[in-house]
């Protein structure tokens, strides 16, 4: 199971707690959408490389 965690904004404590549990013992990657000029090609590549994507607020 490969997880991809995507963040639309800086993750808060609740999100960090949930991500830690979801990623436990799994391969995990992340992508920050809240930076300047996110590379959408890279994000799409990551989505298709992952088994499951969660895009947090």
């Amino acid at each position: 199971m490969k997880m991809l965690q995507v963040y639309r904004s800086e993750p808060n404590d609740d999100v960090k707690t949930l991500v830690d549990i979801l990623n436990r013992d799994r391969e995990a990657d992340e992508f920050k959408l809240y930076g300047e000029n996110p590379n959408y090609d890279e994000l799409v590549s990551k989505i298709f490389a992952a088994d499951k994507t969660v895009c947090w607020w």
Binding site: V15, T17, L18, D20, I21, L22, R24, K52, V54, W57
Partner: peptide, 13 residues
Amino acid sequence: LGERMRDADVIIP
């Protein structure tokens, strides 16, 4: 909640 969602197929914030 985190433990339950490990079995989720889709998580929608």
